[in-house]
Amino acid sequence: MYKPIAYEITETINFTEEVKLFRIKSKINPMPGQFIEVSIPGIGECPLASCAYNTDYIDLLTRNAGNVTSAVFKLQKGEKIFFRGPYGKGFPIKELKGKDLILIAGGTGIAPVASLIEYIEKNRKDFGRMYIFFGFRNENYILLKDKIEKWKNKFDFTLTLDKKLVPESNLVCETGFIQDIIDKKKIDFKNSSALICGPEIMMKCVSEKLMSLGLKKNRIYWSMERRMECGFGSCGRCQIQDLYVCKDGPVFRYDIIKPKIDNEESANEVKT
């Protein structure tokens, strides 16, 4: 259950100083939103989601943030990386079929959403209209540029930057947070489902905006981040009240997960 398997890195792409993509030859093809426990023997494990959906390779968008990811960062093409999985439930594809979808992601949170977009590309007729919003801090933080260019032509795709460093550049994008620009689009919010992945504060603000525009709270889904050590509901590290992010999630319906997060946060406000 804990035995990782070795895979080969076939390509690495640098996006920013902090973020690299590792393409790994593997046939396991996790469902969009699922995660795998990536590891380096002797260093440790960390949960990451693939940002590709296919049977040839896994794409790991890795931010140099912790012990393991900083070790992963040093790996080169041709070297071995280990993982076990996939774990978790991923996006509720069945529930989304036939619906209009709003896909929203920020920063490295685009990884699971990118995988979902690729899934939808392959099964386009199963879904209704699609609106995609990707947010980044500024031009220097844009990830998956090639895919974004492709999706811009294929879908109703909006790229937004919190702050545009070079206002006169010819990059087609909005400026501002996603929650501030989303109502510029004519979307039938009442009949859409929204799938969000990003920092928790961003998911919170965007969800509030979406609900004010008429989207039902049981049609908003969050892809969550927690400390997932085992991946199958045993170690207890990723618990949010009675839910295990690794096993019940990492994708949760907003109306289910939000009250539980609020409960825990209410207790954090009392500084003891």
């Binding site: 931010r63 943030a65 912790g66 400390r227 825990e264 207790a267 954090n268």
Partner: peptide
């Protein structure tokens, strides 16, 4: 450190939230 993730965020930051957990 139980719930701490890469980047330093701990989701049950206060003793109250940990005790209740």
């Amino acid at each position: 450190s139980f719930s701490r993730v890469a980047g330093g965020k701990s989701f049950r930051d206060s003793r109250l939230s940990r005790f209740k957990h």
